[in-house]
Design a protein around this nucleic acid. Structure first.
Lengths: 152, 152
DNA sequence: AATCAATAATTGCTTTGACAACTATAGCTC
DNA sequence: GAGCTATAGTTGTCAAAGCAATTATTGATT
């Protein structure tokens, strides 16, 4: 379930490798936590459900932007979640192109049940950092992201 | 060439999304730099060539571990690089299971030509951070990685 | 020496996510 | 209101990368 790269002796120094590994391990940890709770969903799927729960119904495009997801990927993500009954695609009454994605009862229940699984995992992952360091890590990453986006 | 997610208004707060975006933008920046120099290779491929250049010939497995890559992915990466003549797979004289991956003349020349493209891109990407902050960013990511790896 | 487990590389399969092409609708401009 | 452009969602295609299974070889144990 996890990348088979954990037995590397020494820590990667390259920023690219480092980012890839941390992201991949974090995703793995999230998904282990999910399967531990008997939920057969990817972290990204739960993230979408949670986003709908927190912000209420929205269009597929809005949801894609909220998760920084590709539109095509979002269609398929919605397919899977709708198939399993966690949400419904309703027509938007004001715009016949658009959808209004709504959590179903079971989708809402699932999000409530999972509650703060993400916070738990993050807390474990960031356990080696104190509050100040966590704040800084987020800050640094955001600043790097801004720089990268500006430079093209 | 880059994820079509750059037009997101506000910065992602979620650590998972943040890591995905920073990694993806960084890879894009690397690859734009490569195409700008007329090199039709992925960043990971150049990374492998550079690794061979710096450490000398090694087996496919060693290279995979050095890049924190899956063995299967490494086979295919080597296929592509060998096809283009940047390296050779030689039999390891001491172990008939293993390979000895060697840079070709053109592979060596390419690495020399690209010299410090990676440093240039990283310097641009991390432009918003001072030296102390860069050091901290790497340190934090490494500590998070250690924690994540320990917790299973 | 025979056997058995571990390791090296390869291959097939799968998933993820990006991109491009397409259709339908909205909204602006003349 | 005709036409143009932008936007919403869907679909097809593709490459990257992880995993499992396979083959060949090594090294250790009996």
């Amino acid at each position: 379930m996890c990348p088979a790269t954990r037995d590397t002796e020494k820590l990667p120094e390259s920023m690219g490798v480092l980012l890839r590994l941390v992201k991949s391990e974090l995703m793995c940890a999230m998904e282990e936590e999910l399967t531990a709770q008997g939920v057969d969903l990817r972290h990204s799927q739960v993230h979408a459900l949670r986003c709908l729960y927190l912000s209420g119904p929205m269009s597929a495009g809005e949801l894609a932007r909220a998760l920084a997801y590709d539109a095509g990927a979002m269609t398929r993500l919605l397919d899977q979640l709708e198939e399993r009954g966690y949400l419904h695609r309703r027509p938007d009454p004001d715009d016949r192109r658009a959808l209004r994605i709504e959590l179903s009862t079971s989708g809402t229940a699932l999000v409530r049940k999972l509650a703060d699984y993400k916070e738990r995992v993050l807390d474990r992952a960031l356990g080696a950092l104190d509050d100040e360091e966590r704040r800084r890590l987020t800050d640094y990453l955001q600043r790097v992201l801004i720089t990268l986006r500006q430079s093209h």
